[in-house]
Design a binder for these strands. Structure first.
Length: 530
DNA sequence: AAGTTTAACAACCGCCAAGGA
DNA sequence: TTCCTTGGCGGTTGTTAAACT
């Protein structure tokens, strides 16, 4: 935090110096510096000068806060009211607490965020002297760092604390007006973490004193997009590339005691208001871990969601039921987020994990299903797929799911795995890797590979009362009903057809699949490269 | 020593809700 | 009831300095 302090102290001293260069000033400093202009003409943007600050402070002394648009009239300050208000609130207020966040404050921020999500103003209200902007900046920087480090956003004890507080009281903390979604969502069932999930835990990284609990998975559209695909189980584990600086990690994890409990709701973060849409299909689509499939809570099939734990930036103040406003944080889908735990639950690999796998072939993770081709290459997978197809008329959909590995897992462990560029070339809108932005995220509700043509058959196989999406919200990667080969955006989607495509469309689709596999093997028509 | 990366920070932008005309 | 103004909030971007390679 020495750096932080230094930065903070430096702030005022260097402010004017910084301003000499200007950031986004709409006109020159000379113009702005005059400050007391006629109150007309273009309003200045960019950094504030000391003179402007003095004018604003003087104005507030005389007139009090508020009526910010009048500042320009009364003082001649060439700033819009909004800008004045911001400057006052964030920098000039006398009760502001300058300097770096203390460890206590940092912890408080984490706790508050776990409860509130991105409610910066409310968080600031809980931290006297701190501004929402400060907290927001801190948080964004923090989660960026944590993601880069592959560390969980929320320490275990914070999760437990929120969980406990939510159980003790229907109103968490001092949240007004029943804004308790986060806490309620945290009341997910206690999860036992299968041991297998930690096989690849890289404790040797040295900065993971506790079991990772909450992982910063985007909850909003990005999350929805990815959850049925590859990254919904992108658990934040130490990256293969440790960050250059982990000062924060030291601070946080030294500050926050690491009492880990096996009952920490590890996977609740995957479940949001539409959890029923995503969890269950995913359950189906992980047949190589049927042991886990039988473990409902593992997949959160019936669980309430946890926005707070989903995403460091996720706001969860929105009602759970009904349309949810998508809040898309800037950091919600960093590349490093994908380079994560090699959980078998991740049907599609992150690029980094693929790279890792290519560089160092997988070992443990491929042991779960001797039948599945996940330990072989894509070619084997396709061969395997063809075998499955042959038997598909006999086997029920459910059986097939239970006996087959996710095709994308084949890709995952395959040395033929296409690289990121390939995916991007294919179809960004369908690629989780291509979704670094917030556009159109809600358009593809990830239902994994379930055929949208016959949700009933799926439901009959489920113990949980799950309502599946209809075709209009079909999975991003699933084979679309009207699909031609061009709509098969990924090889695993092709394979999925075989894995899950025992539906009424099967006969029609099968020839397409055959073509597609042929294309995969020989034509390279979509730009798959080795 | 130079170039690159990262963290911290400041400020703007757009959206939204409340209140008043 | 509608429109406008104001204030608040959250997301994003640009800049700088420090740290790192």
């Amino acid at each position: 935090m020495g750096t932080l302090s230094a930065m903070s102290n430096m702030r005022n001293e260097s402010e004017d110096r910084k301003m000499s260069k200007g950031r986004r000033s709409s006109f020159s400093i000379e113009e702005a510096g005059s400050g007391e202009n006629s109150g007309e003409g273009p309003l200045k943007k960019g950094p504030w000068t000391s003179a402007e600050d003095a004018i604003l402070v003087e104005y507030v002394k005389k007139h009090g806060e508020g009526n910010w648009n009048a500042v320009q009239k009364h003082s001649g300050l060439a700033r819009c009211g909004k800008s004045c208000r911001l400057r006052w609130a964030n920098h000039l207020r006398p009760d502001l607490r300058k300097g770096a966040f203390t460890p206590e404050e940092e912890r408080r921020i984490i706790e508050l965020h776990a409860k509130m999500g991105n409610k910066w103003a409310r968080m600031a209200a809980e931290l006297p002297g701190r501004t929402d902007n400060e907290i927001k900046n801190y948080w964004n920087t923090r989660i960026k760092r944590m993601q880069r480090a592959g560390l969980p956003i929320y320490p275990a004890d914070v999760c437990l604390q929120v969980l406990n507080s939510s159980q003790e009281s229907p109103h968490v903390g001092s949240l007004p007006n029943g804004d308790i979604q986060h806490a309620d969502l945290l009341q997910a069932q206690n999860f036992e973490i299968p041991d297998v999930e930690f096989k690849n835990l890289k404790l040797s990284q040295g900065y993971l004193p506790f079991t990772p609990t909450i992982f910063d998975i985007p909850e909003s559209g990005m999350f929805k997009q990815s959850v049925g695909l590859s990254h919904s189980y992108d658990l934040q584990f130490p990256d293969m590339r440790p960050p250059k600086r982990l000062r924060e990690a030291d601070t946080i994890y030294n500050t926050l005691e690491s009492g880990i409990s096996s009952s920490v709701p590890i996977f609740t973060q995957y479940v949001d208001y539409n959890c029923e849409k995503v969890a269950e299909p995913f359950k189906l689509s992980s047949p190589c871990h049927s042991d886990l499939n039988t473990n409902d809570h593992y997949h959160g099939g019936n669980l309430p969601g946890s926005h707070a734990l989903l995403n460091g930036n996720a706001s969860s103040s929105e009602p759970i039921a009904g349309p949810m406003k998508l809040e898309l944080p800037s950091l919600q889908y960093l590349e490093t987020q994908q380079g994560s735990w090699e959980t078998p639950m991740s049907p599609l690999p992150s690029i980094e994990s693929v790279d890792t796998l290519i560089k160092s072939p997988p070992n443990e993770q491929t042991q779960s299903d001797p039948i599945s081709p996940q330990s072989s290459g894509l070619l084997e997978a396709i061969i395997y797929e063809s075998r499955v197809l042959k038997g598909s008329n006999i086997n029920s959909c459910h059986q097939t799911r239970d006996n087959c590995a996710m095709p994308s897992e084949v890709v995952k462990s395959s040395p033929l795995n296409p690289n990121e560029t390939d995916w991007e070339e294919l179809d960004d809108t369908n690629s989780p890797l291509g979704h670094s932005a917030a556009s159109g995220l809600s358009e593809h509700t990830p239902i994994s590979m379930i055929s949208t043509d016959e949700p009933q058959s799926i439901e009959t196989t489920q113990e949980n009362d799950i309502k599946h999406e209809t075709a209009k919200d079909g999975p991003a990667y699933c084979f679309r009903k009207k699909g031609s080969l061009n709509q098969l955006t990924r090889p695993d989607a092709l394979l999925d057809l075989g894995w899950f495509g025992h539906n009424s469309e099967y006969g029609k689709d099968h020839s397409i699949l055959t073509d597609a596999i042929g294309a995969l093997l020989g034509e390279d028509r979509h730009g798959y490269h080795e």
